[in-house]
């Protein structure tokens, strides 16, 4: 059987082949999304080796559970892989007892001023460093809300907290980041 290049295969075809344990298709999916999922893990987990390991666990779970996945158009497999990887990151943080989330008053963070185009002056590495400087609870909610497109209801369900706790964690994360950005700029 000839193996077409990664570009020719669309997501639906790749997933169909991956369901049949086709190693070539699995490799294409992996090499296509491995970098992106590694960056995702690095937002939640600062240590590179741990982040890579969690990324691997996410892919393993993805390939082994494809039978329960329903393809809903281009990008749905990538979104499912992203959700699985986020869950793997959360599981990792829970196992290490790093995910501690507490309620608190967040009103004081609403009126912190920011200047225009402050991020333009920062490198990606500096942005990532700022995210890593957040307490794990704040960082997790911030990542889920800002980067992984989850609303507070979803975050609350996933983390087993109330929506208000999720909101307060996000506000605190934002406040800390703004302060850091202002200091830097």
């Amino acid at each position: 059987m000839s193996t077409p290049s990664a570009e020719i295969w669309n997501e639906a075809e790749l997933i169909a082949r991956c369901r049949k344990k086709d190693a070539a298709a699995q490799k294409i999916v992996f090499t296509r999304y491995a970098g992106e999922m590694t960056v995702l893990c690095l937002r939640y987990i600062a240590r590179q080796e741990e982040a890579k390991e969690v990324m691997m666990d996410g892919f393993l779970r993805f390939f082994n559970n494809l039978d329960s996945f329903t393809w809903r158009g281009e990008g749905s497999a990538r979104a499912w892989l992203q959700r699985i990887t986020v869950n793997q990151c959360l599981t990792h943080l829970r196992r290490r007892n790093m995910l501690v989330l507490t309620d608190g008053d967040d009103s004081s963070y609403d009126h912190i001023p920011t200047s225009d185009n402050v991020l333009g002056q920062l490198t990606v590495r500096e942005i990532m460093k700022m995210i890593h400087s957040l307490p794990v609870g704040y960082r997790t909610v911030f990542n889920m809300y800002v980067f992984d497109d989850m609303d507070h209801k979803e975050i609350a369900q996933t983390l087993g907290i109330s929506e208000s706790t999720s909101k307060s964690q996000l506000h605190r994360a934002r406040a800390i980041l703004k302060e850091k950005i202002l200091q830097t700029s």
Binding site: A34, G35, E36, T38, V39, L42, R43, Q48, K52, L119, V124, R125, I127, M128, V146, F147
Partner: peptide
């Protein structure tokens, strides 16, 4: 911030 991170190649971080 999101766009910057999405456009970033992984080897810049790793």
């Amino acid at each position: 911030m999101k766009e910057k991170l999405a456009a970033m190649p992984v080897d810049e971080l790793v």
